[in-house]
Amino acid sequence: MKFAQLAGTRLFYGFLLVTGLGWIWLSAAPQNSTTNGKIPAPQSGFLAPDFNLKTLDGQNVRLSDFRGKVVLVNIWASWCTPCRAEMPAIERVYQNYREQGLIVLAVDSTVQDTVSNVKAFVDENELSFPILLDEGGLVTRLYRVQSLPNSFFIGADGVVREVVIGGPMAEALVSSRVEKLLQEIQR
């Protein structure tokens, strides 16, 4: 009886493992079944949704123009305390890596901010990267921003590699992510 029970268990385990192998084979990912970074969405693994906004200086900036470079899109507002806290760190990382091809686009959620406050904050902190004004709230909606700040690390292929919701981000977090993405370009 015990022998039969043992043999039955072994048979079941064997069946399970063979079925598992069959399932792996059957469910192998067909070509293009994963995102492959083609669909635009504000999520890791997807193409970063494109936008075109005016900067504080009145120039137009389009995200897709920076394809081939590492981009950090930081969505913020001048009244948001963690946004204010992380900006100096982002500025330092930008200064350290801009020569290697880092682009920082700080998108102010102007739909919930005022341009005069933004200007005052930028001057006070001597921010050198472009400050984009999302006056209609298009990018805030497109990137599904529910709280501020939101940061999107985008690879040279235009695909979102990481989303950081909330802040403030530590300087080492920003520079390590940027370093990793820059290494990908150099390879």
Binding site: A170, E171, L173, E179
Partner: peptide, 24 residues
């Protein structure tokens, strides 16, 4: 483990060693 992977980032900003950021 994270510091050993990106020592340069922490040399530039040593205080980040004590950051509560889960990404670190």
């Amino acid at each position: 483990g994270y510091v050993l992977q990106f020592p340069h980032a922490f040399i530039q900003a040593p205080l980040s060693l004590f950051s509560p950021n889960p990404g670190l």
